[in-house]
């Protein structure tokens, strides 16, 4: 039995550690049930944001993931301060998420096929791409190239990390160049766009997948709503920049519900494998 707090004003009808309200349909969802349903609303199929570790567990064969470059942490090249100094902001995000930066990379197998995987974490400073994210994604691409594995990148990011200024912008060029080498070597790159994928991440590697999949209802667009309204003084219409809209416009191959994501990825990875003879040529 729960003890009632005598000084607390206003009762919360649903304690938040037990229940979550779906932002789309307003349904109150029992947390355990929500997790069991892969963080998808049981009523309206709204896809909640998924943490990077949960995403990895969702995609790869169980216990096959080994992390790479896990210890890289960001520097502070500009001495950037907004309301808080940048290093303090990083430490705050690290304690909040338990991760060192906004992407986790590593090797795994998917349906028995060895792959290299990079998964972005929106909870860490909006999944923004600074030096560490750029470096880890570049290393993942270079590793996939040397080990001749397919690469899967799951994006969830607000864009380039403003706290690293123009250096963050250069990460776009760096990651794209590494992925281009991967493609030139005939290796598969699957890009998965999740809620949200915007700004510099969409304007670089996320848009360059050989096959691009998106999660239902994910916000995908180049410019964020706040920048758009500041620049052109009007708001984007509802349902614009959503995964289904991009599918209709031809910028995404498929919109895949979360429950089917793993099988779909496994199918593409298995289908686009190089035959052994080709492999020998490539080496």
């Amino acid at each position: 039995m729960r003890l009632r707090m005598p000084f607390r004003r206003g009762k919360t009808e649903f304690p938040s550690h037990l229940w979550t309200q779906c932002p789309n349909c307003g349904e109150m969802l029992f947390n355990k049930q929500l997790v069991r349903n892969l963080s998808v609303c049981t009523k309206c199929e709204h896809h909640f944001k998924l943490g990077a570790r949960e995403r990895i567990a969702l995609i790869v064969d169980s216990d096959s993931f080994t992390e790479r470059d896990a210890t890289l942490v960001s520097g502070d090249p500009l001495g950037f301060t907004d309301s808080k100094a940048y290093p303090a902001r990083i430490i705050e995000s690290q304690t909040k998420t338990g991760e060192r930066d906004a992407v986790i990379t590593g090797d795994a197998s998917l349906g028995g096929v060895p792959i290299t995987l990079a998964v972005m974490n929106f909870a860490f400073m909006g999944g923004s791409m600074g030096g560490v994210v750029g470096e880890k994604i570049t290393r993942a691409a270079e590793h996939a190239l040397s080990a001749r594995r397919p690469l899967i990148i799951v994006s969830a990011s607000g864009g380039a990390r403003m706290q690293e200024g123009t250096i963050a912008l250069m990460q776009l060029a760096k990651t794209v160049a590494a992925l281009t080498r991967l493609g030139d070597a005939g290796l598969l790159f699957l890009s998965v766009l999740t809620d949200p994928t915007t700004g510099g991440v969409l304007a670089s590697f996320a848009s360059l997948g050989d096959i691009i999949l998106a999660e239902p209802g994910a916000l995908i667009g180049f410019s964020g709503a706040r920048v758009t309204s500041e620049t052109i003084g009007e708001k984007l219409p509802m349902g614009f920049q959503r995964a289904e809209f991009l599918l209709e416009r031809g910028f995404v191959d498929q919109v895949v519900p979360r429950a089917q994501l793993r099988d779909r990825l496994a199918f593409f990875v298995a289908a686009c494998r190089l035959p052994v003879a080709e492999l020998r040529w490539g080496l």
């Binding site: 304007a203 670089s204 360059l208």
Partner: peptide, 24 residues
């Protein structure tokens, strides 16, 4: 890059990514 709805609809992110890729 222009951040308006017409640009989004015609794939601003993809166009920039491709341009960076071709140059690289």
């Amino acid at each position: 890059a222009y951040p308006g709805p017409e640009a989004e609809e015609r794939g601003q992110g993809e166009a920039i990514a491709k341009s960076i890729q071709v140059m690289s």
